[in-house]
Design a protein around this nucleic acid. Structure first.
Lengths: 222, 222
DNA sequence: GATGCCAAATTGGGATACCAAACTGGCATC
DNA sequence: GATGCCAGTTTGGTATCCCAATTTGGCATC
């Protein structure tokens, strides 16, 4: 694989895992020494990440994209539009085997699994659910939306109970799709998305001061 | 503005206006001489356009993204999800003045205006309509979807009557939003999007042989 | 005339050189 | 002590250089 893609993937991972603080400045020369390539592939990777909105320009400088709590409400609306459409199409198109495969994804996550695991499965579920729609544009858009939410979800302080609730909602949606009840499935996924927003905003609002203290650029009214 | 952005914008325009044929190979050195910059900004522009899916890699080479007729159906579904959500939010949020501004956009396009004008207004309408939703994610996604349809729309052979029909549908949607009838507006935009798909596919299917003869890479079953 | 093969040219990936603009730090001034 | 200013440093933008890989063209061979 080209150096540019290696740098892109590694830097992407560092940003999404919060190894690099939101708002932190990135100099091309630091990245050059950090990843052992020259500026050419570093710059290509930055341009790519800029298109994914994981880094952005601040004047002439590059910074890790800040987390914008103001986006969360709009992102929730966006997901409602996409995911209700996705589950409706899924009801019409997914085979039982397809649905079982998504259920397996949920089952593979043990109750005492590490936080990373829950985080990953919580994202993957929505993407795989989207895939049942058979529409790649929906898949890509939902995947991008989950990426935009990803870092905020890391910051959320989640009780084991809250995680259990979210997973129960996931299972419920799958059941309704299996029964081909499109209206109920759309309603359920919509409710789940809103619940997620509420949990997230409540947690982040409570913890906002602490997050800023950790040096994270958190902007926008939650 | 930086050279990279100039090159990006010019090249983007050339691709969207079909000055560069879909599937055509682009060498970095040709672009370098064509736009009078060095390879560094050229390459940055290409990486950017790759993220917009207007150019893509073919092995190590760069090519203008082919037109994929197979995408049109999925894109239509995608737009249905996005635009019905957008008009529903618009009914709740847009002011009468906002709606009038979109109507002015339509009125500014004379019946005998050149083809470019109809093409542009036909795209802008949907983006400005999306803006009435107040949700930037919907705006961006709809804008990107219209860009993906843009070149296929150029290829469409459109009678004056067909254009008139499309514009009448646009006005009808606006009226329903003005009356705050969300269900009817959603229904109307959805019908319009499907009509557009049908017109487009019928026209392209008829003309496919001719398009290939012009050297355009047109892939996928329509 | 078809085919196989090798040298030359071209291409993209990467590294580096150079420059102008922005930033920094410290010193002189008030 | 606060303020203004200038030299030195750092940075991103651009141009250019080098290299390995691929493509190309033509020539020898069959």
């Amino acid at each position: 694989m080209s150096q540019m893609l290696q740098i892109h993937d590694q830097l992407r991972e560092m940003i999404l895992s919060l190894d690099l603080a939101p708002g932190e400045r990135l100099t091309e020369r630091w990245l050059e020494s950090r990843f052992g390539g020259s500026r050419t592939p570093v710059r290509a990777a930055l341009v790519r990440l800029e298109a994914e909105e994981l880094v952005q320009r601040d004047g002439r400088n590059w910074i890790v994209a800040p987390i914008d709590l103001g986006e969360i409400a709009a992102l929730t609306e966006f997901r409602e539009a996409l995911e209700t459409a996705a589950v409706r199409h899924a009801c019409a198109r997914a085979t039982d085997a397809d649905i079982d495969a998504v259920e397996d994804l949920l089952n593979a996550c043990e109750p005492d699994a590490p936080r990373e695991e829950w985080h990953r499965v919580g994202t993957d579920f929505h993407v795989e659910l989207a895939r049942l729609s058979g529409n790649d544009f929906l898949v890509k858009a939902i995947s991008a939306a989950m990426t935009k939410l990803s870092r905020a979800r890391w910051l959320e302080v989640r009780t084991e109970e809250a995680r259990g609730n979210a997973f129960a909602e996931h299972r419920h949606v799958l059941d309704l799709i299996r029964r081909r009840d499109a209206d109920a499935a759309a309603e359920a996924i919509c409710g789940h998305i809103r619940d997620t927003r509420d949990r997230l905003l409540r947690s982040l609002e409570d913890d906002r001061r602490g997050l800023r203290a950790r040096g994270f650029a958190i902007i926008g009214a939650a």
